[in-house]
Structures are given as structure tokens and as C-alpha cells.
Simulated assay, not measured.
Amino acid sequence: METILEINQLHKTYGALTAVDHISFKIKKGHVYGILGPNGSGKSTTLGMVLNVVNPTSGEYKWFEGSTSNHDALKRIGAIIERPNFYPSMSAIQNLELVCKIKNIDKSKIEEKLAVVDLLNRSHSKFSTYSLGMKQRLAIASALLNDPEILILDEPTNGLDPQGIRQIRDIIQKIASNGTTILLASHLLDEVEKVCTDVIVLRLGKMLYAGPVDEMNRNHGSIFIDASDRKALHSFIENKPYAGTITTHDNGLEVKLYEPVDNAQINKDAFESGIILSKLVHRKQSLEDQFIELTNKN
């Protein structure tokens, strides 16, 4: 699979402050990546460096397997790393025509991109009449004008209401379904979990994890289990290869899973050991649980 972006030991300091601390990861073609971390974790600085607007202190990065210069690589990238900046008195089409002129892009794609972000019916409205969500969608349309191979978004839903967040999420998924690689920075766990296939977790400039969202750690969720003979149940479950930490609650046992296992298999194993289960519920661990667990370990 083609590597779109490779980062190797990228490091950025501002005086005594370390903004990004020797991070390394790869962005592969066709995936949706989330750089996840709280404000101040180094997300925007990382994006600024790979987009050639912030100079790294050390380390390196290369676009498209080093087959092109950074200047030419930027022509194959669409990015929004600041608030949308358009002329208020001009319409969406007029603003995008100006973007095409500045970037020397053919104007023929304007209506197509407005349709992608669901703004075609407001294409002749002045930018000043747009809601915050519409302004953000117009910015995405602008970043798509050159048919980029990768779209980079920095906090794309910041400040939006739930409806606006849902619209941006749907647009990102639509763009990704057409084969465009996406890299978005966000502090919202829910956003990353619902949109991204892969995640890079940053905290205070350090990278804690890079990989698939559903493999962020070895934990495969938990089961909540109970039986009339709880002591026998505890002895039974603690010897199973899939069972991790067991916590006793008033209403049963909570067992973390370190291997995937289905409820039918657990029920069968218990029955064969003479235990009749009165409760068996499998809860997949959320990205929020995984993130908190991961950051607490580091």
C-alpha cells in the first residue's frame, strides 16, 4: 500500500517548550487518520510542519515516498488548518473562483465540490449569510478543488452544534469513500471513533500510540457475568485464557477480555463446568475508555 506521508523523529521546540517530541508514523493511502489529543498536545504544530508552514527543530518527513519535492507535493494536498477566510460580500462561487485563480486551478470543479459539501443550493449566497457550519463546509469545498490525494483538516468541527458536527462527519465519510486519504486533528474522542480507521494519540508532544482505532490496546472490552455460586464462577472464569482483570460488584463480576470470545462460547464453557449463568453481557471498550487507560499508563 502506497505511503502518502512518512514522519521520522519529527521534533519542534519553542525555547524551553517542547511542542512535538520526536514523533514517527506513516500515513497510508485510502485510510482516515485521526491525530487525537487535548489542546496543547502538538496536533496543530505537527500539521504545520508537514505543510511547510512551521520549521521543524529536527527530524524529517517526506510526501509520496519522496518521489516529489515538498513544493510539488503541496499541489497534491488539500488542507484547512485555520478558520475559513473568505470575502464576506462575495458568494460561494465567487470566492471559489478567486481560490482557483490564486492557485491556478480549473474552475470547472466548483459546482461539483459545492455539491459534495451540500452547498450547491446556496452557491450564490453571500459568505456573510452563512452559518459557521456552512462556512466550514465551504472551506472543505475549497480544499477539494484540486482533487487532492490527501485532505488535511485541523479540528474540522470545532465550535459547531450537533447538527453541524454530523454534517461535517457525513461529508468526511463521503470524501473518504471515494478513495481520498484523510488526516484530521481533533480533541474529540467521539469524532475520531466514528470517522477514523486509524489514530495517532499525542499528549504533551509525545506520541503514545499509532495504529488502527480498534487495536489501540490489547483490551477487547469487558463481560459482566453472574451466577448463583459466585465463588465457583470466579474460579471458573479466572482460569480462562481470555480473562484478564476481574472486579467484583454487587450485581456480579466484571471481567476484562484480553482475547476475543463470543458469549455463546462462554455460556457453553460455564455449563460444562456445572455453572448456570444468570447474567452475561459483553461491553466493547469505548475509545474514551481506551484513551484514558492509555494516557494513565504513560
Rank of each mutant, 00 (worst) to 15 (best):
Y242F: 07
D229W: 13
D190E: 15
E111P: 05
K174H: 12
Y242R: 02
F291H: 09
I172K: 12
I7K: 05
N251W: 09
T13Y: 03
A227F: 09
K101A: 06
I105L: 11
P156G: 07
V281S: 13
A79I: 00
T180Q: 03
P148T: 10
N217P: 03
N8W: 05
D229S: 09
I172Q: 12
V54Y: 15
Y33H: 08
S58L: 01
S58K: 14
S142K: 12
A16P: 10
V50Y: 06
K43G: 06
F127D: 00
C196T: 10
N219V: 02
D170N: 15
R166A: 02
M1L: 12
L5G: 03
V20E: 06
A232I: 01
E191T: 06
L144A: 01
V32W: 03
T13E: 08
N8L: 01
P241C: 00
F291N: 05
V195E: 05
T157H: 12
N70S: 12
G40C: 00
V199K: 09
L253K: 10
I81T: 14
A139P: 05
K194W: 08
I223F: 09
Q290L: 02
E293W: 14
G252A: 06
E112S: 15
K206E: 08
K194Y: 11
E60V: 00
P241S: 08
L132S: 15
M49S: 03
S286A: 01
I165R: 10
I93M: 03
A141K: 07
S89E: 07
S142P: 04
V213H: 02
S235R: 15
E97M: 07
T129P: 00
L151C: 04
P84K: 13
L233F: 08
T248S: 15
L153I: 09
L114F: 09
L294F: 06
S89D: 08
L204H: 15
L145C: 11
R283I: 03
G179L: 03
S278A: 00
N52I: 00
L184R: 10
E82H: 14
L253R: 07
D154A: 08
H124G: 01
S142G: 11
V201Q: 05
I152F: 08
V261F: 08
I171G: 13
V116K: 14
L151E: 07
S286D: 02
H187D: 10
V213S: 00
L189M: 12
H234E: 08
S131G: 13
C196H: 13
T247D: 07
N239E: 14
L153H: 13
K231L: 03
D226K: 15
G78R: 12
N158C: 07
G66V: 05
K62P: 01
I225Q: 12
G48L: 01
A270E: 04
Q265P: 01
I182Y: 07
S235C: 10
K28L: 02
